[in-house]
Design a protein around this nucleic acid. Structure first.
Lengths: 128, 128
DNA sequence: ACAATCTACATGCATCTGCATCTAGTGCAA
DNA sequence: TTGCACTAGATGCAGATGCATGTAGATTGT
């Protein structure tokens, strides 16, 4: 890949990323009172395969962090907002009391399910 | 493109974007005291093809805005920082006194030329 | 058992961003 | 000319982010 190809690949990437992210954020905010980051976290929680001895649909912060493009501090705050909104709960982890399990509430599942329709629609329009 | 393909395309896009942007920002900041947005603007100015009756390497804010993934207000502030840093100058546009021409200074050209090496290197590593 | 070290998550702080709005200048219409 | 709508760019403000650090709990070596 030549340097010029590299640069124009990067510019295309920037362009699609921004267009899609902005469209997603606006659509989710207008239609579902969710930011794009909030949705990413809900989406990761929904998709999480449950490990054997964990509660349903719950993930440790660090596992969540691995599926989401957010720094550790940003993730902590996004989860905080979701908790304030009643969409997730935080629970202590029994065998490692430093750990926090994040679990979707029923309302969280519902909100995510509705928002997902918007999300997929925006992707279909914008990434086409 | 199925919905699943769409979603995984989007996730890949998110991942490469974040990895590359963060790497760029860190490398440019550490090595050249420039944020990634500042570099984008310098890069756009450098590449600008000069319209007939305009000064060399200068662009109106709105033309700059078209080449860069920033809102109008964010662009205004990035240019402000670059000006404070002595890398660009703002000049009134003669025939439309609302308009502002942004022009690279010599130091701006020098700084961009050095930073470009880092920039291209990071792209080569991270977008590979 | 205890001290030192490491890990998980939260938080203070500075910075950056977008939205809405403001100011100044342009252009058209009566 | 005067008035009104429109455009270019700057800025107040609220919110989000990352870095550095803080706190509490776990782990390791002696």
């Amino acid at each position: 890949m030549t340097e010029n190809e590299l640069v124009s690949t990067w510019r295309d990437l920037l362009r699609s990323y921004h267009a899609t992210w902005c469209a997603l954020d606006r659509a989710l905010r207008d239609g579902h009172q969710l930011g794009a980051s909030e949705f990413e976290v809900l989406d990761a929680l929904t998709e999480a395969v449950c490990a054997p001895d964990q509660e349903q649909a719950s993930l440790r912060m660090q596992d969540l962090g691995a599926s989401v493009q957010l720094s550790q501090s940003a993730l902590s705050r996004v989860v905080g907002r979701l908790e304030d909104d009643g969409l997730v709960t935080r629970a202590m982890c029994g065998h490692d009391r430093r750990g926090i399990y994040v679990r979707l509430t029923d309302e969280g599942q519902t909100r995510h399910a509705k928002a997902m329709i918007t999300h997929r629609a925006v992707l279909a329009e914008t990434l086409a």
